[in-house]
Computed example of a mutant assay.
Amino acid sequence: MAIDATTGSTSALTAATTTSTENPNGVLGKDDFMQLLLTELQYQDPTEPTDTETILTQTSQLASLESADNTNAALEKLTASLGSSQQFSTISAIGKTADLGSDAIAHDKDTETTFEVYFPNDVEQGVVSITDANGQTVKTLDVGTNPAGVYQFTWDGTDSSGNQVDSAIYHVNAEYTDANGDTQQTRLGAYPIESVRFDGDNTYLKVGSNYVSLENIVEVY
C-alpha cells in the first residue's frame, strides 16, 4: 500500500506540473483549484485519508474564491457600463459653451497665424485685439458687421506700424457692439459645442472647426 501511495503522490505531482506548464503566468482560477482538490482526493492514501474537516475547509476556500471571481467580473461590467453612461451623458453639453481655459496663441516670426473667435451676439462693429505678455496691444483686427457665430481671423504677424513681431505667446480678446448698442466682450478659447464624437474610451467635442478632447475642456456653461 505504501508503494501505491507513493505512486499516487507522483501522479498528483505530475498533474500539478502539467497545470503549471499550461499556465505560464502562474494565475490560478477556481477551476484550477477544483482540479487540484479532485486530484488530491483521487490519489489520497487509503490508509490515511484526508481529514473531513480539511476537505470542508478547502471546499469553503474554493467557494470564497468563486465568489470573489464573480464579484470581480460584476465590478468590471459595472465599470464598463458606468464608463459608457458617462460618455453618452456628454451629449447633453451640445449647444452649451466650452471653455478651453486660455486666450493665448503661439506665433512664429515672419509667418501668419490663424485663430478663431466666437461672438455670442450679433456684431454691429468691433475689433479683435492681439496683446503681448505685458498686456500691450500689438495689433487690432476689424470684426465688421456680422451675425453671431465663430469667425476665423488671420494675423500677418505685424504690429500696428507694419513691423514683424518676435516669436512669442500672444493673447486674443475682442470688444464689440451688439445689435442693441450694448458693449460686449469675448475672447479666444470659448466656443459653442456643436457635436460629440466617441473614439473608444476617448470623448471629443467639436468646438469651432476643431475636435478637442474632453480632458482639455476646463468648463462648460
Score class of each variant (00 low, 15 high):
residue 159 D to R: 02
residue 112 E to I: 07
residue 172 V to G: 05
residue 120 P to C: 09
residue 95 G to F: 00
residue 116 E to F: 04
residue 152 Q to I: 12
residue 83 G to D: 13
residue 101 G to K: 00
residue 93 A to K: 15
residue 127 V to F: 10
residue 172 V to Y: 01
residue 134 N to C: 03
residue 137 T to I: 01
residue 123 V to H: 01
residue 94 I to G: 11
residue 75 L to Y: 07
residue 156 D to A: 04
residue 113 T to L: 13
residue 121 N to L: 12
residue 136 Q to L: 15
residue 123 V to F: 03
residue 171 H to L: 02
residue 82 L to P: 08
residue 100 L to W: 07
residue 115 F to V: 02
residue 140 T to H: 06
residue 85 S to G: 09
residue 88 F to D: 10
residue 138 V to C: 00
residue 120 P to S: 06
residue 161 S to I: 06
residue 128 V to H: 08
residue 143 V to D: 07
residue 112 E to W: 05
residue 148 A to L: 01
residue 105 I to C: 11
residue 86 Q to V: 07
residue 150 V to T: 13
residue 147 P to T: 15
residue 139 K to S: 01
residue 138 V to I: 04
residue 117 V to R: 05
residue 114 T to S: 15
residue 133 A to W: 06
residue 152 Q to R: 13
residue 86 Q to S: 15
residue 154 T to R: 08
residue 170 Y to E: 00
residue 105 I to A: 12
residue 169 I to L: 12
residue 118 Y to R: 06
residue 163 N to S: 12
residue 93 A to T: 15
residue 130 I to M: 02
residue 127 V to K: 13
residue 119 F to R: 00
residue 136 Q to G: 08
residue 119 F to S: 01
residue 110 D to P: 05
residue 81 S to N: 14
residue 92 S to L: 13
residue 90 T to K: 14
residue 76 E to H: 11
residue 158 T to Q: 03
residue 139 K to H: 04
residue 160 S to L: 10
residue 94 I to E: 08
residue 123 V to S: 04
residue 131 T to E: 07
residue 81 S to R: 11
residue 91 I to N: 11
residue 104 A to F: 10
residue 88 F to Q: 10
residue 156 D to S: 08
residue 95 G to E: 07
residue 128 V to G: 10
residue 176 Y to I: 03
residue 168 A to K: 05
residue 85 S to N: 07
residue 112 E to F: 10
residue 117 V to D: 07
residue 138 V to H: 00
residue 108 D to N: 14
residue 91 I to D: 10
residue 102 S to L: 08
residue 78 L to V: 13
residue 83 G to I: 10
residue 140 T to I: 11
residue 80 A to E: 14
residue 94 I to R: 06
residue 137 T to W: 00
residue 75 L to G: 05
residue 86 Q to Y: 15
residue 90 T to P: 04
residue 165 V to R: 01
residue 130 I to H: 01
residue 103 D to C: 11
residue 102 S to N: 14
residue 128 V to T: 12
residue 170 Y to S: 00
residue 102 S to H: 09
residue 130 I to S: 05
residue 87 Q to W: 03
residue 177 T to N: 06
residue 143 V to W: 04
residue 131 T to C: 02
residue 83 G to P: 12
residue 125 Q to V: 11
